[in-house]
């Protein structure tokens, strides 16, 4: 689907810069000790360096990786990201990546409709940076004008905000959700001639899948999920997917985080049916080895 994925490395990094790029989003740039390449939609697991780090590394979609410097965008949402935000230049980090299934490459006969919400921006931002063409369309949504990383986005992105406050002077934004902004755009591709690439919170992904269904477009979504290992071994981040009409668990980190929206019942299609695999040992009653 996407060609060869770059091999993952377990790198040691040193923080080059780490700070706010808007009222809510931090950008972290890490210098790595190994060459690092990625495809848009892939992510990295990041942790303090050494064996006494947090129990689980945290997954972050990759914003960019150039000249041995990995860049991510994050919002402080818990212990891990709060600790990350406190790190200054030179702080040591361990980085495992790139990981996961990336977004598909562009199709010549289909324009791209990129939809990013909040810190779901990096995968679609990286897609546009890597593969963007003049006829592609980029939309970004945030909670308010202060959250928007205006300098990072540049002129290519059309912006929506839930609330109008915090808009810098000279900036304009659509008030409403990002999918409404996209749906109202006068220059959108016709029925059947576009592919949606989306990343953001659940409501955004459901709206993106719905928009694509109604317009006959293909839709790829990148899921945000809590993860344990990030490389498919712990089974701690499963999502339900429908294959051949049956629902099964897929590891978000290894089979995803990018999925064809039509495989995800949570996004409204298709109708769920019982699990293909039902065990002979009562579910949930096993302690011991995970």
């Amino acid at each position: 689907m996407t060609g060869a994925r770059p091999s993952a490395c377990a790198a040691v990094g040193a923080v080059r810069s780490n700070g706010l790029v808007s009222s809510a989003f931090h950008r972290l740039d890490v210098e790595l000790d190994l060459p690092f390449d990625f495809l848009p939609g892939q992510f990295a697991m990041i942790n303090e360096a050494g064996p006494r780090a947090w129990t689980f590394s945290r997954p972050f979609s990759i914003l960019a990786a150039e000249d041995g410097v990995l860049s991510i965008l994050y919002r402080v949402v818990g212990r891990g990201t709060a600790a990350l935000a406190a790190l200054g230049p030179g702080a040591a980090l361990q980085v495992l990546g790139p990981l996961g299934e990336p977004f598909p490459t562009p199709q010549a006969d289909r324009a791209a409709v990129l939809l990013g919400g909040g810190v779901g921006l990096p995968p679609v931002f990286a897609w546009l940076q890597r593969w963007g063409r003049p006829g592609d369309h980029a939309f970004f949504g945030a909670r308010d004008g202060g959250e928007v990383p205006w300098d990072l986005l540049g002129d290519r992105w059309r912006v929506s905000v839930d609330r109008g406050e915090g808009l810098p002077g000279g900036r304009t934004a659509f008030t409403g959700v990002v999918t409404a902004l996209a749906a109202s755009a006068p220059d959108l591709p016709s029925h059947g001639s576009a592919t949606v690439y989306a990343c953001g919170p659940g409501p955004l992904l459901r709206a993106a899948a719905d928009l694509a269904r109604r317009r006959g477009w293909t839709c790829w979504v990148s899921l945000e999920e809590h993860m344990g290992c990030g490389y498919g071994v712990c089974k701690g981040c499963v999502v339900q997917v429908a294959d051949d009409g049956r629902i099964r668990n897929a590891t978000c980190c290894f089979e995803g985080p990018v999925f064809d929206a039509t495989r995800l019942p949570d996004l409204g299609s298709p109708a769920p049916v019982p699990h293909a695999a039902s065990g002979d040992i009562p579910p949930g009653s096993c302690g011991g080895a995970p």
Partner: peptide
């Protein structure tokens, strides 16, 4: 086995709880 429903992992300050369900 399909395993247990999510969430399956909880991080604690010095470890983790799991309920993967084999």
């Amino acid at each position: 086995r399909a395993g247990n429903p999510m969430p399956r992992l909880v991080e604690t300050p010095c470890g983790a709880l799991n309920s993967i369900g084999l």
